[in-house]
Design a protein around this nucleic acid. Sequence first.
DNA 1: ATGCGATCTGACATCGATGTCAAGCACAAA
DNA 2: TTTGTGCTTGACATCGATGTCAGATCGCAT
Lengths: 339, 339
Amino acid sequence: MRMKPLTLKDVAQHAGVSPKTVSRVINGEAYVRPEVRSAVQKVVDELGYRPNAFARELSSSRSFLLGLYFDDPASTYAADLQRGALARCRALGYHLVVEQVTRDQPDWLAQCEASLRAMRLGGAILTPPLCDWPELLDLFARMGVAVVRISPGDFHDRTAAVEMDESGAARELTEALIALGHRDIGFIQGNPEHHAAARRQEGFEAAMAAAGLPVRPDRTLQGDFTFRSGLAAGERLLTGASRPSAIFAANDEMALGVLVSAMRAGIAVPDQLSIAGFDDAAIARMAWPPLSTVHQPHVEMAAAAVELLTQAPATAARGTLLRRLPHRLTLRDSTGPAR
Amino acid sequence: MRMKPLTLKDVAQHAGVSPKTVSRVINGEAYVRPEVRSAVQKVVDELGYRPNAFARELSSSRSFLLGLYFDDPASTYAADLQRGALARCRALGYHLVVEQVTRDQPDWLAQCEASLRAMRLGGAILTPPLCDWPELLDLFARMGVAVVRISPGDFHDRTAAVEMDESGAARELTEALIALGHRDIGFIQGNPEHHAAARRQEGFEAAMAAAGLPVRPDRTLQGDFTFRSGLAAGERLLTGASRPSAIFAANDEMALGVLVSAMRAGIAVPDQLSIAGFDDAAIARMAWPPLSTVHQPHVEMAAAAVELLTQAPATAARGTLLRRLPHRLTLRDSTGPAR
DNA sequence: ATGCGATCTGACATCGATGTCAAGCACAAA
DNA sequence: TTTGTGCTTGACATCGATGTCAGATCGCAT
């Protein structure tokens, strides 16, 4: 027994006013007599009426749907971002549509455009690395969809953004390692497609330079933010004639790879080798020893993005907003004094 | 410069036919002359026209939006399910709306209902544990929204479902441990809210019984699928006067907890202790040693769920469909011969 | 008493698609 | 020639809301 949907008209009849007046009450518009307003509101509450979002979108061309765009929804930070966005959406009465965009097909942009045209969004949250694809930014601009980007690299004037101090955080973490007595520190770079990778490396190198320590090219290896790449880099760093006393990987997954490679090589962590990551993903606490890292406020960042989209979409579209959220150094047991 | 949206009418004018005829072509309806059909199709392709999904939904009350309902979107299996659903939706031209439902507020059901009323879904995928909440199933039935459940426990006649052989898989894994010579095997139970937890325990106990091995109550500990609970259970199992030679945790996160507790206690894995999990989450490969587990086809299960919803929604609503997908025993290095 | 602006209210058109239905047409059977 | 049948097409109403606009009501200054 399906319920037949409740419409504005039904409410209007119960309240003895016109549908338009009910619409005014629903949307909190001016020019409704207080008595009428509260009477209508009462009927709305009693009947549990909820306006049909599709009809609303059609007639007013505003939308209650936000898009969350990912390159890879299985990445460790994706889950946290989604959680934050979801919670905020729920609270604000919005809904979250998740979209995955990859550039592995030649017509990826056309597909995106088709999807956007079929379903107008009230706003979109773009995560790395696709927040830095200029064609995608152009597309959203063309379609008139407000965008907030998470940790973007370039084009800061084009859209609103939420970020943290990647380079400062990497610097702090490096300083903490140096304070523990480490002078020979390896660094594993992140996926160069992610703008954050370069920022973190800058922070690392700044701290090293400030301490008068050399950044040795043979101690800097290219990774791509995956566990596998961390494992490979760890093996190379740890099997040479000499090895660093600490390794800073640009994210937690790679740090875990280093950790496993150390285990395999019989190198004790942190006694013989300190390992640090970045992100404070859930897995950082599930390792042994638990990973020292930088806590990145992913949940809060996504929540802030939703707020920017829902509360100041016009401003967001103009791209004048930048929100920077605080990080937190989180030292656990994978780092210790230099041997 | 925003693009003005392209409508049916525009296409109709270009093609020199009525909007209705274009609609027929778009929807592949009968009774259009082949020449007209291909001519219209050509205009559609040239202009890159995509029908507005909201208008479509409004007039035809069918919907291109599928809901993916989670209790906790940060759980390890959530990401895999979402990935599978997302890929399939993309291929079929549907969109995925993610919703989180928890029972921690008294009006959770009313909130769900409001949200469903505002946005009619073309179907919903319910994941554990909320796939077994009868009030929620009632709600979807009342709203006339087709549902496919992932690994449900009860009410198999109420909706379509996708599952795997939880108990058989647990049995196989246990048999593998027994074949390695283990006779004293600890078991860590999953969150009792998840139906799968009990199935896995059944499989474990069946294998033990078939091998004539006792299931000792002091070797069976309650967990809740979290890393922390696995850690606590591991500590209790490993610090007693005697300890099992193998531990089977009902999911990977708990198995990782056991692994860490073994590391802390200086117990070598797998030489002195074998550890097995369940799910084959991404983290199973990021541990050291990598975790023996059961590969659960989450991606395929979610894809199957989308197919059921989009291709046979009526059947799905009647609840006659059950799709069972194959699992795969995945033995890695955390298990070895009994000492 | 009259005029005027500010405050209310509802009739009606509109958003972009699909459902319904009747009309037009071709062709076969009567 | 007439009738019937099936194919093809478009006019029009409809889905459920909001935008527009004109009309009604009220208080207040003239």
